[in-house]
Design a binder for these strands. Structure first.
Lengths: 245, 245
DNA sequence: CGTCCTATTGAAATTCTTCAACACTCGTGG
DNA sequence: CCACGAGTGTTGAAGAATTTCAATAGGACG
């Protein structure tokens, strides 16, 4: 992957892009210095509060984004109010649905979020010029598809206890990119409130709460307050995601 | 979309490709006559019986395919045997996971299936030469991602009755591409047995059976035998996919 | 004709939800 | 400074939906 990135001199890079994760691990890594410069003329860095709706379901989107920090939830709504979160996105993910005017999902911030937005048209022009850019977008979609299908297993076949464990495991493995892969114990802030967790897992708030209590009483996790959790041993948690017994 | 396809003279097209749906609506539409000719040297048309495992989960895949007829199910397995079908694929879908050696899912025929297979390496070389080909593959992945997320709503938030209705609606809208969009009544063979339907919906065989009986008694469907069904009115069925009451 | 595979149906058991009460935190305004 | 209300989370008890267990039936095939 690294070899695919354009060989650019750091000095030529637009200032806003210099230390940007989207350039290192996101889609901007596919762009040449010239392209980066061109794009940066139209970009807009913005910080949003938690619980801000960025892309309403079914409405026209005029800008795409790169997520710079924070967590975004993608959700769907039924007419009677039932909700399902169909994906979580972390930095430096690309946010948007290329080649389609209307989004199939609502995108909403779950935490405070910083994004770098740019007009749809600019990116789509660049896609036509740069197969490498389209390739990176394609790769992200394939990854999202793999993730979505993994989660379908969780939604369709796992018990409430396994679902909650799977959720904590997912967050634990995504929230902090700098975490060593071998750290068996980690602590973090859960980026979602109970209602969101419930909507992500296809459960009720109460069931989520009860299962968290059960994990706490079993010693698998510690809950400092509602949001901050410590996984005592990720291996134990991983086992809890799939109780073969 | 049609304007994007290469302008080719019918006489130059390889014989096997002439009436192939993969060329009209599948990924081969992105190929020039020369490319089609090149690819066709390595293709292999095969027919498989129902319940044949084409791609085992986690194993190396050496060939990709286009589905020419029939239905393929993509599934995942937990250690204790619980199974979830994470997608169904119909003609002329492309089958395979590009840019990854190991498949994340098992691909198995649900019905008798005819495929056109070709070596992974040939396609991946062509992808590098033809951005248009990669674009079509990308578009299919985006569609699969949209479908997967739709289904996550079904798995996570719908009742058993709504799930079974959603399944019949999905099949009814995919099984016969020639069907008029306005036909309110349609009949078809359900391509999955009860156990598969259950694995697709995250239910048990018994619950599926009971819900089908309920739909039959309500007059929404007719069941000629276990496999062949008539939807009396697709609009009524669509409403049953999401009972707002 | 017996066996395997598939599907249906009933009754009991289980899981999860619903309903209800209560606790905690935080910001605001008296 | 404290009271109040909104928002969030926990816990218990009752209820509902779905699963599990068990029995039965039909069709395909040797």
């Amino acid at each position: 992957m690294k070899a695919d990135r354009k060989d650019i001199h750091n000095s030529d890079i637009p200032a806003v892009c210099k230390s940007c994760e989207a350039r290192h691990r996101g889609i901007c890594g596919a762009l040449s210095t010239d392209q980066l410069l061109h794009l940066s003329k139209y970009t807009n860095r913005t910080t949003y509060d938690s619980a801000t709706e960025l892309i309403p379901e079914g409405e026209d989107v005029e800008r795409y984004s790169n997520i710079l920090s924070g967590v975004i939830k993608l959700s769907k709504l039924l007419a009677d109010g039932r909700q399902q979160i169909v994906g979580l996105q972390f930095a430096p993910d690309f946010l948007g649905r290329p080649f389609k005017n209307k989004s199939e999902t609502t995108a909403e911030t779950a935490t405070q979020v910083e994004v770098c937005t740019f007009p749809k048209s600019i990116l789509e022009t660049m896609i036509h010029q740069s197969p490498e850019l389209e390739h990176l977008l394609y790769e992200q979609s394939l990854k999202e598809l793999d993730d979505a299908r993994d989660w379908m297993m969780t939604l369709g076949r796992k018990t409430a206890a396994e679902k909650v464990a799977s959720f904590l495991y997912l967050i634990g493995t995504h929230i902090d990119p700098t975490r060593g892969i071998n750290d068996s114990s980690i602590g973090f802030e859960i980026p979602l409130k109970r209602a969101d967790i419930a909507d992500f897992l296809g459960l009720t708030i109460e069931t989520v709460s009860r299962q968290l209590t059960k994990l706490r009483k079993a010693g698998t996790i510690e809950l400092e307050n509602n949001r901050s959790v410590t996984i005592k041993d990720m291996n134990v948690l991983r086992n809890a995601c799939e109780q073969s017994t």
